[in-house]
């Protein structure tokens, strides 16, 4: 569904944000896009949505070049930025005006989200809190039933119950012909939701794997003491011991901790990718 070939993006000649990014993302997944601050996540999302144009290479969604911003392409994507604007209208009015642009918009589905969020259609958007506005825009995006929903830091500003609601409604919206890209720093909020995981560092994709592969190839353990072993890929101090990541040589799958996984990959991407490549070659 998304095909990115040799995408390079620079704001200025001296500052390259994305460098030769290649990605092929089939539909039916909730992609988790992770990376440190300034890694280029938002820039990549904006390139996919056609809000920024590649300096080199190309980005295609459903065979449409993103930069052309054709209406048939735009009706199949919905972009929820971290910071957004909602007009001074009631929720009902907003839906009446904007839903007409999306042919598969489902008003009943949106009403269901409003009920879940305990919001009334008559409420003025400008009178809502940031978190409530975020729920509205996420609910609207889901109700468009577009093929690709792009969310930049979707759980920022949501309270604890809303985060669970968010996970629930996103999980229930995934279909074979629909994809989500969630870019976030709040990995705990979306840990149960995202698969595969894409990690971007200094403008390059350094990791792109499904959880299943991660569990097969890496082993996540908690040890009471710090271990010095060549097999240890990463270790970090936690309450009551150490969280350790090793190459999975036993074949026994352990539950991957996304935060620890991210830190492991960032600490030594070459070595981690070597493990995944070696096993791929063996297969």
């Amino acid at each position: 569904m998304i095909e990115i070939n040799d995408l390079t993006f620079c704001y200025t000649r001296k500052k390259t944000i994305l460098r030769d990014v290649n990605l092929n993302l089939p539909s039916g997944n909730v992609y988790g896009l992770l990376g440190k601050n300034g890694a280029g996540k938002s820039t990549l999302l904006k390139n996919i949505a056609g809000l920024l144009f590649p300096t080199d290479g190309e980005c295609k969604v459903l065979d449409y070049r993103s930069k052309d911003r054709l209406p048939d392409f735009l009706r199949e994507i919905y972009f929820i930025p971290e910071e957004f604007h909602l007009p001074a209208l009631s929720i009902k009015r907003y839906v009446d005006i904007y839903s007409s642009f999306y042919p598969r918009f489902n008003k009943d589905q949106f009403s269901g989200y409003l009920e879940e969020y305990q919001l009334q259609p008559s409420e003025k958007l400008t009178a809502l809190s940031y978190g409530q506005k975020k729920k509205i825009i996420i609910g609207f995006g889901l109700a468009t039933n577009c093929a690709l929903l792009i969310m930049d830091e979707p759980t920022n500003g949501l309270d604890i119950p809303s985060k669970s609601q968010f996970r629930k409604i996103v999980a229930s919206s995934v279909t074979e012909d629909r994809s989500f890209i969630i870019s976030t720093h709040q990995v705990r909020d979306v840990e149960s939701l995202i698969d595969p995981i894409i990690i971007l560092d200094e403008g390059e994709i350094i990791f792109n794997q499904y959880f299943e592969q991660v569990s097969k190839k890496l082993s996540f353990e908690v040890t009471p003491q710090k271990m010095n072993d060549d097999d240890i890929l990463f270790s970090q101090s936690i309450l009551g011991g150490y969280s350790v990541v090793m190459e999975n040589k036993t074949g026994i799958e352990t539950e991957a901790d996304l935060e620890v996984l991210f830190n492991t990959i960032i600490s030594d991407p070459k070595r981690i990718n070597q493990i995944f490549e070696d096993t791929d070659n063996e297969n």
């Binding site: 949505a49 056609g50 809000l51 911003r69 735009l74 972009f79 604007h85």
Partner: peptide, 8 residues
């Protein structure tokens, strides 16, 4: 963001 991604 909203204006440029509006399907028109």
């Amino acid at each position: 963001y909203a204006y440029l991604t509006l399907p028109v």
